[in-house]
C-alpha cells in the first residue's frame, strides 16, 4: 500500500506527465478560444482572430515604423466596425515642427457654465456610464486659492455670488511625474508638448494616476460605453479612439483636432472666452500675449512639474 502510494506521488510530479498535461491544456484552451469567439470575417479579407492576435502582440507605438502604424490603424478601424458598428477613421497625424502647445485659463471670465465639459465628453468619446470627464470645474470662494477647498459637484444656477470658477484638466507638464512613474513607457511627451498614452501598451497599474498632482488622469474600470449614434468618428490613435477596460486615459489637448489646426473642443465651446489655446513658440500667438501682458500663475508651480497650463486674471 505504502509503495503504491509512493508511486502515485512520484507520478504526479513526473516531468513527462506534467508536459503532457500542459500540452493538452494548451490545446483545449486554444480550442476553447476558437469556439468561444466568433471568428467573423472582416472587410478586406482578414479574419477576426488573426486581427485580434496581431493587435495583441503589436509594439509600443513609439517603436513602430510608419508601415506598422498604418497596419495597426487599419486593424483598429476594422475592429471598431466589429465591436461598435462604427466606421471610425483613425488618424495618426504627426506633430508639426516649431509647435509647442500651451493653454491659459481666465479665472475672471469663467462663470461655471460647464459647456467645456460637455463638449469634451462628446468630442473624446468619454464613457457615459461612469460619467468620465477630463475637465473639472471647481466653484471657489472669492479670495481662495487652494483648489481643494473648491466645490467640484455644484449644480445650481451659475455664476454664484462671491464665487469664481477654476477649471483643471491635464496640464501637459514638461517634467511630467506621470511619465516618470509609468513602468511600461506607455505614456510619453510628444515633440509638440502633448502628453499621450498608448492605450494598448498600458497595463492599468495606475501609478501615473497616483503620481499626478493635478488629478489629470482617468481609469477605465470597465469597457467605456458610448451610444453608437453619439460616437465621434474622427479619431486619432493617441487621442479619442475607443479605450478598453483597464486602460488609463486623459486629456490630449484634443490631439485629433489641434494637430489639424483646430482649437480643442473645450476652448471652442467656452461661451465666455475664458480659454486661450495656442503655440507657445509663436511670439505673435494669443497665448504668448497672455503670458506677456496678464497676471499669470501656474498651479502648484513649486512642485517643479513645469505645466504648460496657466491661469490668468483680468
Amino acid at each position: 500500500m505504502a509503495a503504491n502510494k509512493k508511486k502515485t506521488m512520484n507520478q504526479k510530479h513526473d516531468r513527462r506527465t506534467f508536459l503532457k498535461g500542459a500540452a493538452t491544456c494548451a490545446a483545449a484552451g486554444s480550442a476553447l478560444i476558437a469556439s468561444g469567439c466568433n471568428n467573423r470575417p472582416l472587410p478586406g479579407g482578414d479574419d477576426e482572430m488573426s486581427v485580434r492576435w496581431k493587435e495583441y502582440f503589436k509594439k509600443n507605438y513609439q517603436l513602430m515604423t510608419p508601415e506598422e502604424k498604418e497596419a495597426t490603424i487599419r486593424r483598429l478601424e476594422q475592429l471598431s466596425k466589429l465591436d461598435y458598428d462604427v466606421d471610425a477613421s483613425i488618424a495618426r497625424t504627426e506633430p508639426r515642427g516649431k509647435v509647442l502647445f500651451g493653454y491659459a485659463f481666465n479665472i475672471t471670465r469663467c462663470e461655471g457654465f460647464m459647456d467645456c465639459v460637455q463638449a469634451c465628453v462628446e468630442e473624446n468619446n468619454l464613457d457615459r456610464k461612469s460619467k468620465t470627464q477630463y475637465v473639472r470645474v471647481f466653484e471657489m470662494e472669492n479670495g481662495q486659492m487652494d483648489i481643494s477647498t473648491g466645490n467640484g459637484k455644484y449644480f445650481h444656477e451659475v455664476p454664484k455670488e462671491d464665487h469664481f470658477y477654476m477649471g483643471i484638466q491635464c496640464f501637459h507638464c514638461e517634467q511630467a511625474p506621470c511619465i516618470k512613474a509609468c513602468p511600461t513607457k506607455a505614456t510619453w511627451m510628444e515633440p509638440d508638448g502633448i502628453v499621450v498614452v498608448d492605450y494598448d501598451w498600458c497595463i492599468g497599474c495606475r501609478y501615473c494616476m497616483a503620481a499626478c498632482p493635478y488629478w489629470g488622469r482617468r481609469f477605465n474600470w470597465h469597457d467605456p460605453e458610448v451610444p453608437k449614434e453619439e460616437m465621434n468618428k474622427k479619431q486619432h490613435y493617441l487621442g479619442n479612439r475607443m479605450r478598453k477596460k483597464g486602460q488609463m486615459e486623459k486629456c490630449t489637448f484634443c490631439i485629433q483636432r489641434t494637430r489639424n489646426g483646430k482649437l480643442p473642443a473645450c476652448a471652442e465651446a467656452c461661451p465666455t472666452g475664458a480659454r486661450v489655446f495656442g503655440n507657445l513658440l509663436d511670439p505673435d500667438s494669443e497665448i504668448r500675449f497672455v503670458l506677456k501682458n496678464k497676471k499669470v500663475f501656474r498651479m502648484k508651480e513649486e512642485l517643479g512639474t513645469d505645466p504648460k497650463f496657466w491661469y490668468f486674471i483680468d
Binding site: 457654465f113 460647464m114 465639459v117 465628453v121 470627464q133 481643494s148 451659475v158 455664476p159 482617468r218
Partner: peptide, 22 residues
C-alpha cells in the same frame, strides 16, 4: 451673461480628489 444652469453636472465620487483628506 445671464445666469443659467450649467450644461452638465460634475463628477461622480469615485473620480473626485479626496477633498476631506486634503
Amino acid at each position: 451673461f445671464s445666469k443659467r444652469w450649467p450644461a452638465t453636472f460634475s463628477l461622480p465620487d469615485s473620480v473626485l480628489p479626496d477633498q476631506e483628506d486634503e
